[in-house]
Nucleic acid binder design. Structure first.
Length: 675
DNA sequence: GAGTTTGAAACT
DNA sequence: CAGTTTCAAACTC
């Protein structure tokens, strides 16, 4: 069915490009395309497709939304671009320029061609441009049609993507040394630097696998979308996504073995990066995201990872990253941060580019990867090791969280010295089943362990007071008793984060932040807020409450609660927005962790007590949602936990008459219903 | 590289 | 839920 449809569709596209868009737009069309990515791509329409690319964000196809879709798409692009760049390097500048533009634009076509082969082909094709490969003519046509997908191009193209496209074919020969082309060349070169080693079949495979499984759908949809709109003259934004599908699917078909589990696998990224150096190329900006493999199920890990990376890499290792970048000629592509993740370690060499961007762009990284990275950067063990996580399991068969590989969502690979390892693609079923079991016990077992607050967004939303020093914290906290949180035995320390309320450590001396310090900061922040902003807040709240009463917010249907809410002083901080944020975002799960932190930060008062309860992962997620934190029960309880004095002190101050806060909490529950 | 220490994960 | 055991990483020598 799918194949037929896909085949038919292309034809239709060819015949009537404009109508295509309609079909493509339809989800059904996308789905079909996904099933059979090959054909549609080749159709001329494909070129048009890119032009239309408007999708900045893929539809919420996946159960767990990945922020990375674009990235991936770009990533794929990048590959093309990289290849292209490589090819260009070979060819003359003028030709190259053309090719670059064409390539970029025609990435889709190339990909289509690649379907039979791997992405590697692209370069060849491109390089052959001068030679006028067989499809050259078609390519040109398609390319011309294709909109400039690459971001760099986008600049040049900007408004004239359409023009370019049309012109290019004609002017290809004529226009060789256009500044744009040169720019492209430069970009390509930079990309090459960054991604130079796109070989890891494994890593790539991982991506492919991931994509193939769930994401593939998404991409397919994207592709279609892109294809659809020939109109989209200049939507360069992220049309590229299209390519990935095919590439991925193709590649995947091709052969690579998987290292990454279907879930998400942070480690995949590295490989992906390596193999797909491409992604990085594309955009420094989005690239980061790009590179990040959108995990299907484990995206959480990715997030968490990111968090760590950012912290770690930025704060501690940042210098090292710089070094790496420097080594690479400096043109490091930003992004990549995620790339850096676990596996990047393996090939730290090739991935120099990753680092710099890494953390910054993406907040979260895989913890393990980060760790390894750290190690590598730190000069520790790792460098030699190849980056990826390597386990040494002997009894767990790499099917328990003891196994770092398994815990990271990646398959064990050669470097691992595990015994009787079942964490291999061959035993995929077993791995998945085991994973499910573990998740059944602890849904967050594979979720990132470190939550990063850095996003001031949430924090900011609330009052300033909410801000806390620590940007990231270990979700569950550590339980160190002898290491004083000064060794890697401590997960907090290992993750490069300070200890928090959640920690049950003894004699904490965590260099990244002591538990007690964390508590103090929280308390202080609360107090400050209370003193400084309390009055203001109360005033605002009152005003808001009045306003709310008059004009209920559509977003939060809490008519009955409204009054209560309004009264709450916390609302100002917490504001419904956060809740909305969580609720609204499909990725609530992702953010939850952040929310936890932020909430804690925001809620401060309640948080302290609440956080204690949260220590457990599940609760965290649930709790993390503002709702939870706000949940009357929890809060009511929390004050009690805090102790009579505190509720009185903190709440008392604020509340002074505002006990309403507690009531307001109930209001949130109303929000929960959304869930 | 072997042995020890440590704390998370798993089990009871 | 608390206590114990198992496990593998981190660490030391």
């Amino acid at each position: 069915m799918d194949n037929e449809n896909s085949q038919k569709e292309p034809a239709s596209k060819i015949e009537t490009p404009t109508p295509k868009s309609k079909f493509e737009d339809s989800p059904v069309f996308n789905f079909i395309n996904n099933l059979s990515p090959f054909e549609p791509v080749k159709s001329f329409s494909s070129a048009q497709t890119f032009s239309s690319l408007n999708f900045t964000s893929p539809p919420p196809v996946f159960a767990s939304p990945h922020p990375n879709f674009h990235r991936e798409s770009r990533f794929f692009r990048c590959q093309h671009s990289v290849d292209r760049s490589k090819a260009l390097g070979d060819g003359s500048v003028s030709k190259e320029d053309r090719e670059v533009d064409l390539n970029k634009d025609a990435t889709l076509e190339d990909e289509e061609e690649e379907d039979t082969e791997t992405s590697c082909e692209l370069p060849q094709i491109l390089s052959s441009d001068g030679q006028s490969p067989p499809h050259h003519g078609e390519d040109i046509v398609t390319q011309t049609l294709l909109p400039p997908s690459d971001p760099p191009l986008g600049e040049d193209n900007n408004g004239s993507s359409m023009n370019r496209l049309q012109k290019i074919p004609d002017s290809q020969e004529e226009e060789n040394g256009t500044p744009d082309s040169r720019r492209l060349m430069a970009d390509a070169a930079a990309e090459l630097l960054v991604f130079r080693s796109p070989n890891d079949s494994e890593a790539f495979t991982c991506l492919v696998d991931k994509i193939s499984s769930s994401e593939r759908r998404f991409f397919a949809g994207v592709k279609h979308h892109h294809i659809i709109p020939a109109n989209g003259s200049s939507n360069d934004n992220e049309p590229l996504a299209v390519v990935p599908n095919q590439l991925v699917s193709n590649v995947h078909r091709g052969s690579m073995r998987r290292r990454c589990l279907d879930f998400e696998v942070p480690g995949k990224r590295k490989k992906d990066d390596d193999q797909q150096t491409v992604c990085d190329n594309n955009k420094p900006e989005s690239s980061s995201s790009k590179c990040v493999v959108p995990g299907i199920g484990l995206h959480l890990n990715a997030i968490a990872m990111a968090s760590r990376n950012t912290k770690i890499s930025i704060t501690h290792e940042y210098s090292s990253s710089e070094e790496v970048q420097n080594t690479f000629s400096g043109s490091i592509t930003p992004v990549h941060s995620q790339d850096t993740v676990p596996e990047t370690l393996d090939q730290a060499e090739s991935q120099p580019g990753e680092e710099a961007p890494k953390a910054l762009v993406f907040e979260e990284l895989i913890p393990d990867s980060l760790q390894k990275k750290k190690q590598v950067l730190e000069g520790g063990e790792g460098e030699g090791e190849s980056s990826c996580k390597r386990c040494n399991c002997k009894k767990s068969k790499c099917l328990k969280l003891y196994c770092e590989c398994f815990a990271a969502g990646v398959y064990c690979i050669e470097p691992c010295s595990c015994v009787d390892c079942f964490n291999k693609p061959i035993h995929e079923d077993t791995v998945l089943a085991t994973r499910k079991q573990i998740e059944s016990r602890n849904p967050l077992a594979f979720a990132p362990k470190v939550i990063r607050n850095s996003d001031s967004s949430i924090m900011d939303t609330s009052d300033d007071a909410s801000k806390t020093p620590a940007s990231a914290r270990h979700k569950r906290g550590c339980n160190c008793k002898k290491s004083n949180c000064l060794k890697k035995y401590c997960e907090c320390y290992q993750s490069g984060v300070g200890c928090s309320i959640n920690c049950r450590c003894e004699g904490c001396k965590n260099a990244f932040g002591r538990k007690d310090a964390y508590l103090h900061t929280i308390m202080e922040s609360k107090q400050e807020d209370d003193h400084e902003t309390y009055e203001k807040r109360t005033e605002k709240i009152q005003q808001n409450s009045k306003e709310v009463e008059q004009n209920p917010q559509p977003s939060t249907p809490l008519p009955p609660y409204r009054n209560l809410v309004v009264h709450q002083p916390f609302l100002s901080r917490n504001k419904l927005p956060p809740t909305q944020f969580f609720l609204g975002a499909g990725s609530s799960s992702f953010r939850k962790p952040d929310c936890d932190v932020t909430q804690s930060m925001n809620e401060k008062k309640s948080l302290e007590t609440v956080t204690e309860d949260k220590t457990e992962i599940m609760p965290d997620i649930l709790n993390t949602s503002p709702i939870k934190a706000n949940s009357p029960n929890s809060k009511r309880v929390s004050p009690a936990h805090i102790g009579p004095s505190e509720p009185g002190s903190i709440l008392g101050k604020r509340s002074n008459g505002r006990k309403l806060i507690l009531r307001s909490i109930p209001a949130f529950p109303s929000l929960n219903p959304n869930q």
